[in-house]
Design a protein around this nucleic acid. Sequence first.
DNA 1: GCCCAGGGAATCG
DNA 2: CGATTCCATGGG
Length: 272
Amino acid sequence: MDIIKTKNGIEAVSFGDINLPLTLDCGQCFRWENCPDGSFFGTAYNKSVKVRRTENGLLFENTNMHDVENIWVKYFDLEYDYENTLKRLSQDSIIKEEYAKYGTIRILNQEPFETLCSFIISACNNIPRIKGIVKRLCEAYGDKEGEAYTFPSAETLAMKTPEDLDFLRAGYRVPYILDAARKTAEGEIDFEYIKTLEIEKARYELMKIKGVGKKVADCTLLFSLGFRDCFPVDRHIARAVSEYYPDGLPKYFSSDMGLSQQYIFNKCINIQ
DNA sequence: GCCCAGGGAATCG
DNA sequence: CGATTCCATGGG
């Protein structure tokens, strides 16, 4: 992978493939916005950026070399070998077909607190409405960053009352968001510590939060804490597994269960 | 009105 | 234990 300055911005090249629209809209993140010119505008780690696919890689605009190297390369998982990984996973016919059809979905490394809250909100909800709730939350309590808003900090949300979040129209999930914020702000939940744990212990830590069960915990571990081997099971995946993998998942999914899950999830979403 | 949506907690046999 | 019910909101 190389990072080069061009006349248009900063470009990451030679990292392999990425289906950018699908990666940003396959249900692992909820607040990248499409721009009219085909690029995407988003915010993470207190920085906003505009990104689009080029012939050779990814072009980042409205940013600098430091942020590309220290934030966006990691965020888009550009240093992981997807080509060989997907070659291995393609022993499975479903993944082979989805990979041929859609190219490379990358697993993002998002901000942990944002990911945790987003998937708390996702419970028994649909993706457009999750996006709406997250957007209202950021615009109300996040910080202005360029033309966008950051995700609110745990410290900010920890001071709120349920009534302060009525405008979200998030229903029964509001107390869960507040419990996540308070436990994070007080250090009872420590994402850097959780990163160092075995997967079962890491999941157990997150499940101390009200409204966080196995599925929400696994999404947080996979999409923000580097646990590539998590396989979040939601209602779609549960149905797909019982239908397509009645005897269990292939052993060669192991070490990349999460990526496998994203391809299966994508298939589920597109079937309807 | 009905059913469904990237679940989880409380309650009941 | 497993199974059921309720939770709040909005779109089709």
